[in-house]
Design a protein around this nucleic acid. Structure first.
Length: 783
DNA sequence: AGCTGCAAAATTTTT
DNA sequence: TTTTGCAGCT
């Protein structure tokens, strides 16, 4: 039991508590993940079968980390039998075997946000409503909130308060759209993200056999970030845990930052009422931050009402004061941060990976990207689009989706005439009309096209298409997902089309598609993790899984790069040095979140979260002016800055250079009514430093957004051996000799980044050491 | 049917 | 400022 060593008294108490409900109130940096993972390891060490443990997290990243840490503690591979994952992925996985019980196909499609908005747009148009007024994103927010609160279309229509709200927003038809949207998804055999929670809840509530099956299975349930659960998640946990009541929730009310997604802080405040004999353990010692940082955080959060009382403390020293920095423009802010990183690296010997730049909105990233590039500092930006959201990938995937679930209308519309095969807009409109008239799926209309009286040429095109898709489907009966995917790419001319496009983007698209195929291959060949009942290596399972991946899951968090991300995305992480940027009114607190005490308090919790990410040093910055949609706007400093205790503050202006001095004065003048034309610091800087950074162009998954080129070691040309064939590199070992198509011959010197994203460091004879992502690289093993 | 070019919108946070 | 959508042209 040496895993109990190194736990403090409260942590140990939480780990050792065996049966019955348990709530762990875990302050920031108090070793929450350690407790959760040790607790699971302890359960297993004391005889609980891994198959009977369910652990739910909010991000794939958190799930992966937990799994790895448990493996490490246990020293065997029993952990792979645990059900650890996000709410969405675990529920999707179970629904894959159970969906037929609630009228869905088990191979249901999962609609991502784009698919969802597209369906809404379709529905809005079909109801003859104006999609300028009923904007898909606005409608989606309404529907999503309703689903998360377990309010169905009928209840929605009958809910007086909701109806009033819609009336006031001049959108009275939301209820009608909601109803049509749900019906359309059902007809398409598709679930959106919210459905994964909602339908799983419905399954448990309405199908007693399924409920008792999973109640019996999950004897121990652990929930991370409980403060961020919404009513749907709450009810599911309650139902699943009702038999054994071994429900352990971990959370921190001070870090609840997802109410916009339906999370109710009530869930954590109510836990003791739900389970009267619940044990409550508070983890109050912070192991992460210096005393100054922690005190500042505590001081800030005091301004919120209705907390679970707790006293977060540390035995660390005071450390550095935090720096509060005022800048003139957002570009100056970017420059200041990059300069400071450079300086800190030299002066205090930090690595790139010790820095994080955190902001309220993703749109703020640009200034930082620009300045980091200019300084040649490598960075990774989180929060972009996922690999699987790229157009060419979604198109390819649409073919695969159709094969698995022909009723998936969104996929069908995407590829029915791509590459062109003579089924144009007129034909598609007619197909949709027929489907709606007869209340059948579009696919069924295609199958029965002969009855519909199309012109001969059109009919032939349709029938060829149907035959082709059917041939793919029957191939899937005998071949694995990878073989089918390759065949689809060839047969449809899809891959050829991309290959023939020799523009830079075209080449990138082609490479992306090759990577998609590699990922399917890897999936096909990786070992089964489920217990027999469902084929979890099938194409359907693959498709369901990739929809739930975010770009954060594709990037290496351990790479030696500066990390850029939103504060939301940074929850759960820690960094030696943190820059909290853009502390301005309208931005943070955000203009859209200052209309009620609840909203404002959530913004303040967000501020608390960003402060508590820092271990040693913290900079808080704000700019007098910044660009918004190309216009310069002025903002007041954030009201939260007034809540910082003066004694830990070190205030300053940025830089001391001439340019800054002048700009300081101009900003000051402007604030006092003095006129100054629209001199653009950005444009000026661009002239000076040359080309702007390319945006997110062509980064491949798992690579940082930007790595500065190393001038001294250009890749030396290597001509691959005539017999070059990529080997199976899933079991690559240190010491093996390999050949890479570009880099030549080399030896594996290091393996890291375990689990889904293994990385090998290879020392090449001609090109020196390179980090190779095994998921995507093609290597030939020589010995 | 597909492409070009202009107007209008976009940014809060995410599985 | 950048991206998206659509109208009108070929």
């Amino acid at each position: 039991m040496d895993y109990l060593q190194g736990l403090n008294a409260q942590q140990r108490e939480a780990v050792l508590h065996k049966d019955g409900p348990l709530m762990i109130v875990a302050g920031a940096g108090s070793g929450k993940t350690k407790v959760l993972t040790t607790r699971i390891a302890h359960l297993m060490a004391t005889g609980v079968d891994a198959f009977n443990i369910l652990a739910l997290t909010f991000t794939n990243k958190a799930a992966k980390e937990m799994k790895e840490r448990i493996e490490k503690v246990l020293g065997n591979n029993e952990a792979r039998n645990l059900y650890i994952g996000t709410f969405h992925s675990v529920f999707a996985r179970i629904l894959r075997g159970e969906a037929h019980n609630i009228g869905y196909p088990n191979n249901f499609t999962i609609y991502d946000t784009d698919d969802t908005k597209s369906v809404i747009k379709t529905v809005v148009n079909e109801l003859n409503l104006d999609d300028k007024h009923y904007k898909p994103s606005a409608v989606y927010n309404r529907i999503s909130s309703a689903k998360n609160a377990l309010v169905g279309p009928a209840e929605y229509a009958n809910d007086y308060a909701l109806q009033q709200e819609d009336m006031r927003a001049n959108r009275p038809a939301i209820a009608q759209i909601y109803d049509a949207y749900v019906k359309r998804c059902f007809k398409n055999g598709a679930m959106d993200f919210d459905d994964l929670l909602l339908k799983f809840y419905e399954l448990l509530k309405n199908v007693p056999e399924s409920l008792s099956k999973y109640q019996r299975k999950f004897k121990y349930i652990l929930v991370d970030e409980y403060q961020d659960t919404n009513p749907a998640q709450y009810e599911v946990i309650k139902l699943l845990g009702a038999m054994h009541e071994n429900v352990c929730v971990v959370g921190d009310d001070a870090q609840s930052i997802y109410s916009f997604r339906g999370a109710t802080i009530e869930n954590i405040l109510q836990f003791q009422k739900d389970y009267e004999d619940a044990k409550v353990v508070k983890l109050e010692q912070n192991y992460r931050s210096s005393k100054s940082i922690l005190d500042v955080a505590n001081e800030v959060i005091k301004n919120n009402k209705g907390q679970i009382p707790k006293n977060l403390w540390t035995d660390k020293g005071e450390g550095e004061k935090l720096k509060l920095v005022r800048l003139n423009t957002d570009n100056d802010e970017g420059k200041f941060v990059a300069d400071t990183i450079q300086e800190q690296k030299l002066r205090n010997h930090y690595n790139n990976r010790d820095f994080a730049i955190l902001y309220r909105t993703n749109a703020q990233s640009r200034a930082f990207e620009e300045s980091l590039r200019r300084m040649g500092i490598p960075y990774t930006m989180f929060g972009g689009i996922s690999f699987y959201q790229r157009k060419e990938i979604k198109d390819y995937v649409a073919y695969l989706r159709i094969i698995v679930n022909p009723r998936d209308e969104e996929a069908l519309k995407r590829i029915i005439n791509y590459p062109v095969r003579g089924i144009g807009k007129t034909t598609i409109d007619k197909l949709v009309l027929l489907a709606n008239q007869h209340n059948i799926s579009m696919w069924e209309v295609l199958e029965r096209a002969r009855e519909a009286g199309f012109k001969a040429g059109t009919l032939e095109a349709i029938e060829n298409f149907v035959t082709m898709i059917k041939s793919f489907a029957s191939m899937l009966q005998v071949k694995n997902a990878y073989d089918v995917a390759v065949h689809v790419g060839k047969q449809t001319n899809f891959v050829k089309e991309l290959f023939n496009d020799k523009s830079t983007e075209g080449v990138q698209r082609y490479e992306n598609v090759q990577e998609l195929l590699n990922s399917i291959k890897e999936w096909t060949e990786s070992p089964d993790t489920e217990e027999g009942e469902v084929n979890d290596k099938g194409l359907g399972a693959y498709l369901q899984q990739i929809t739930l991946l975010t770009d954060a899951d594709e990037k290496d968090p351990n790479a030696d790069t500066v990390k850029l991300m939103s504060i939301h995305a940074a929850k759960g992480l820690e960094f030696g040095c943190v820059f909290a940027a853009g502390l301005e009114e309208m931005l943070f607190p955000n203009a859209l979140a200052i209309n009620s005490r609840e909203e404002l308090e959530e913004e303040r919790r967000l501020f608390y979260v960003v402060i508590t990410r820092a271990k040693e040093r913290l900079w808080i910055s704000y700019a007098n002016t910044r660009y918004r949609f190309g216009n310069l706007v002025q903002n007041e400093p954030s009201r939260f800055l007034d809540e910082l205790p003066e004694k830990y503050l070190d205030r300053s202006f940025a830089g001391g250079g001439m340019r800054n001095q002048i700009n300081n004065r101009s900003a000051y003048d402007r604030m006092n009514g003095g006129g100054w034309g629209g001199g653009s610091a950005a444009r000026e800087a661009e002239k000076r430093y040359g080309a702007p950074p390319s945006k997110r162009a062509g980064t491949t998954p798992s690579t940082p957004s930007y790595i500065p080129p190393k001038p001294q070691q250009k890749a030396v040309e290597h001509v691959p051996s005539a017999d070059f064939v990529a080997s199976d590199i899933s079991n690559l070992q240190v010491g093996q000799r390999v050949e890479h198509q570009k880099f030549g011959f080399g030896e594996v010197v290091k393996m890291e980044g375990s689990g889904h994203n293994p990385i090998a460091t290879v020392k090449f004879e001609l090109n020196g050491e390179k980090k190779i992502m095994l998921n995507y690289a093609r290597l030939r093993i020589i010995s």
